[in-house]
């Protein structure tokens, strides 16, 4: 299972960086989203994959017995997803406003803040 997820994560990173390197600002947003997913999935995988053993102490038990799933990576991912959601929403609005104001969706045209006589 880890091997499959490792390939998925690799594919997500590849696709994410490829999209960011494209000239279209819409693809940029998609690329940033993919990078976020890749990072989340990586935290999930690296927190060790454990099936059907929730970290819950039963009625009769005193302590957790291995193997049990580590709940912390999932809490981290949940936080990261919420933050990522907010940031993505802002980025989409920003890109839309920029498209309407600057009148282009091509990064090669967006050079005025890098030029001398802006």
């Amino acid at each position: 299972m880890e091997v499959i997820l490792a390939f998925v994560i690799g594919a997500l990173y590849t696709a994410g960086f490829y999209m960011i390197l494209r000239r279209s600002i819409v693809k940029l947003i998609l690329g940033l989203g993919l990078l976020g997913h890749a990072a989340n999935l990586m935290i999930f995988t690296i927190g060790r994959l454990t099936r059907a053993s929730p970290p819950i102490i039963g009625h009769e038990g005193e302590a957790l017995h291995a193997p049990f799933a580590d709940p912390l990576p999932q809490a981290l991912i949940l936080t990261a997803i919420v933050i990522g959601f907010g940031v993505q929403a802002f980025a989409i609005v920003l890109v839309k406003r920029a498209y309407q104001t600057v009148n282009t969706d091509d990064f090669d045209q967006m050079r005025s803040t890098d030029l001398q006589e802006a």
């Binding site: 890749a38 990586m42 927190g47 060790r48 912390l72 920029a98 600057v102």
Partner: peptide, 27 residues
């Protein structure tokens, strides 16, 4: 808006790398 896109993009990439590094260090 134009400067904003550049600022937002680079900072989001940095955050994604930071998050991945945090995950790896926990692992």
């Amino acid at each position: 808006l134009e400067g904003g896109i550049k600022y937002v993009t680079l900072n989001l990439i940095s955050s994604a790398i930071f998050l991945a590094a945090v995950g790896l260090i926990y692992g």
